[in-house]
């Protein structure tokens, strides 16, 4: 079990060393321009920006993220069910199918409610 984790940690370090190394290299080797204020302003495609850079952005992303979490947990519960279903399909196939069917149906009801209530509308 450890001999699977050590190569992953090693690769994690290799990627970080590669990334930081390349960024440091390009920072040093990069062309040095004298600081001028206009270039430092956030890119507004020519139009001078009026308010602060991070004005308030509408909050409708919240619902997508919440429904993602809840359906992600459903997906995560499906994975162990896969193993059990493919192994015990002969003796307990009906029971497993029924239990997961109920679980998925309850969540499908949640999805239908969400679609019908227009929570996912991107007006």
């Amino acid at each position: 079990m450890l001999d699977q984790l050590l190569p992953v940690i090693f690769l994690f370090c290799v990627v970080i060393v590669f990334g930081v190394g390349m960024i440091a290299l390009t920072q040093l080797a990069g062309f040095k321009a004298k600081k001028n204020l206009v270039k430092m302003m956030p890119y507004e495609s020519g139009v001078p920006g009026q308010e602060a850079a991070t004005t308030k952005v509408s909050v409708k992303f919240y619902l997508t993220a919440v429904s993602f979490i809840l359906f992600d947990i459903e997906v995560v519960f499906l994975y162990p069910w896969l193993l059990v279903y493919s192994d015990y399909i002969k003796p307990h196939g009906a029971f497993l199918l029924g239990s997961m069917g109920l679980f998925v149906l309850v969540l499908v009801y949640g999805l239908i409610y969400e679609i019908k209530s227009g929570a996912l509308e991107w007006d």
């Binding site: 909050v59 919240y62 919440v66 809840l70 947990i73 995560v76 519960f77």
Partner: peptide, 23 residues
């Protein structure tokens, strides 16, 4: 497994209330 499911649900609802207060 179950603690993770409940913690995620709690975070979702906690943030919903926080957003309403923020607005």
């Amino acid at each position: 497994f179950f603690v993770m499911a409940i913690a995620a649900a709690e975070a979702a609802i906690g943030l919903a209330i926080a957003i309403s207060v923020f607005r």
